[in-house]
Design a protein around this nucleic acid. Structure first.
Lengths: 139, 139
DNA sequence: TTGCGTGCAAAGGTTTTGCATGGCA
DNA sequence: TGCCATGCAAAACCTTTGCACGCAA
C-alpha cells in the first residue's frame, strides 16, 4: 500500500479475511457474506474497490476459474510470488487442483522461444475432465 | 439436430453466420449486430437459445477468452473436431493466437499419466504477454 | 483541513426466464 | 392440431460509477 492510502476498518477486515483464507479462491459475494455474518457492515462496493487495490498492489491475484460465475481472488504471500502453478479445473464436477511440475516449465520455455509469448501460469486454467468424472462416465 | 427440432429462418441465419465466420470467435452481441445490419430481425433471446442448441449438438464451441466481456462462440467443422489447439491470449493488448504444437501433446500426456486429468485443449487459454507488448514494456 | 474511503442507489453489460404469440410439420 | 420457436419485457447476475457524506492523517 502507498502512503496516500488510508487505513480503515473495512480494508483491514477484507485483507484479514484474505489472509485467513490463503488457500482459497474467494469471490466478492463470499467476502460480503462473511462480512454480513460478522455484522461487519461492509458494502459490496467497498469490497470491489478494496479488492481492486489489493490486486494492483500485487498481494491478491484475480482469477476466472468458473465460467458460470464471476471472478475470484486469492491472497499471495510475499515470499511466494514466484511460486507459480497451473490450475486444472474439471468441467464436470468443478474440482480445482493445482499443478506444479517440470513439464510446465518446459512448455513455457518452448512457447517463449518459438512463439515469443511469456506465459503467466498463475492466470492460466487447463480445463478438462478429472479422473473421477472420467471413470463415472465410462460406466 | 434432432427430429423434434423445427427449421426456422432465425436458426438458419445464425448457423450460416457461424459457418461464414468459421475462423472467428463470435460473441452474442456481434451476432445480433450482424442480424440488425442485415435487417434480419432476430432477437437476442433467440440468439442465446439457438447458440445453446448448437453448443449442445456439438457444432459450436463456447469459449471464455476475454475476462472483461462475456462468452464467445466458434463453429466447428465436422472433420475438425479433433483438431484441438491451445489459445494464447495477451493480457495487455488482448491479441489472441492459436498454438498447435508437439509440446502441448507431451504436456497433456504427462498430465493424464501423472495427474489423471484429461485436458480439453480447446477450452484452455494460456494468458501472458506477447512479444510486442514485452518489447514495448522494456523500453 | 485535505483528500481518500465509504455507502447508497443507480447504471452497465451479459445472460436467463416467463408468458403470450407465431410458425413448422 | 400439437409442439416447438420466437419476441418482448423483465429479471437475474456480476461489476462499475456518481454523488454526497464520513473519516484518516
Amino acid at each position: 500500500m502507498r502512503s496516500n492510502d488510508y487505513k480503515t476498518r473495512q480494508k483491514e477486515l477484507i485483507l484479514n479475511f484474505f489472509i485467513e483464507n490463503k488457500e482459497k479462491h474467494l469471490t466478492a459475494a463470499e467476502i460480503l457474506k462473511h462480512m454480513n455474518a460478522q455484522d461487519s457492515n461492509v458494502s459490496m462496493t467497498t469490497i470491489y474497490r478494496c479488492i481492486e487495490k489489493l490486486v494492483s498492489s500485487g498481494c491478491v491475484r484475480k482469477y476466472f476459474l468458473d465460467e458460470r460465475s464471476g471472478a475470484c481472488y486469492q491472497y499471495i504471500e510475499d515470499g511466494h510470488t514466484c511460486h507459480e502453478h497451473f490450475h486444472l479445473k474439471c468441467i464436470e464436477c468443478g474440482m480445482l487442483t493445482h499443478l506444479d511440475c517440470q513439464h510446465m516449465q518446459s512448455l513455457n520455455q518452448h512457447i517463449l522461444k518459438h512463439h515469443g509469448f511469456t506465459v503467466d501460469n498463475s492466470r492460466t486454467v487447463l480445463y478438462g475432465i478429472c479422473e473421477k468424472c472420467l471413470k463415472r462416465n465410462e460406466r
